[in-house]
Structures are given as structure tokens and as C-alpha cells.
């Protein structure tokens, strides 16, 4: 399955914005109802590793 992360930089202006220092990590989602599922899918779609705990 193809799930590219944002590591792949495409344009000059994006490079500038991405240069800011923020920590890197995966995300833990607590709760597997509709909100938890939606949050997990949104995060995984944006390239995060997600632990979904139910």
C-alpha cells in the first residue's frame, strides 16, 4: 500500500516551512469509537504511526 510521508519535499516554499524544529514521533489514540477511528485514520493518512488502544 502506498502511504508516503511528508519526508518527501516537493517545493521550495515547503522546504522553508518544514525547516522549523519540532519533535518527531508516533501517536497513541485511546478509544476505538468513531472519534478514535477517525483520528487514527487522519493521522495515519498524514504519515504517522498510530497505536489505537481500545
Amino acid at each position: 500500500m502506498h502511504h508516503p510521508s511528508r519526508d518527501h519535499i516537493h517545493s521550495k516554499d515547503q522546504e522553508i516551512i518544514m525547516a522549523k524544529k519540532i519533535p518527531k514521533g508516533s501517536v497513541m489514540v485511546l478509544g476505538g469509537g468513531i472519534a478514535g477511528i477517525q483520528a487514527s485514520l487522519s493521522l495515519a493518512g498524514a504519515g504517522y504511526g498510530v497505536y489505537l488502544v481500545e
Partner: peptide, 30 residues
Amino acid sequence: IGQSMGQASAAAAEIQRVLAPAPFAKPADY
């Protein structure tokens, strides 16, 4: 339900502001 889903995506957006993504898996092709 609609509000909950909007908030769920909003939480994902807030995380993207403060945390760079560390994926578990490399994207694989079909």
C-alpha cells in the same frame, strides 16, 4: 457524531503542528 468526527480530524491537525510524523512502515507499492 458529525461534531465528534470533525474534532477527531481537528486533533490530527493539531498534532501535525507540533509533531513531525514517524511512520511504522515504509510505503509499499501494490
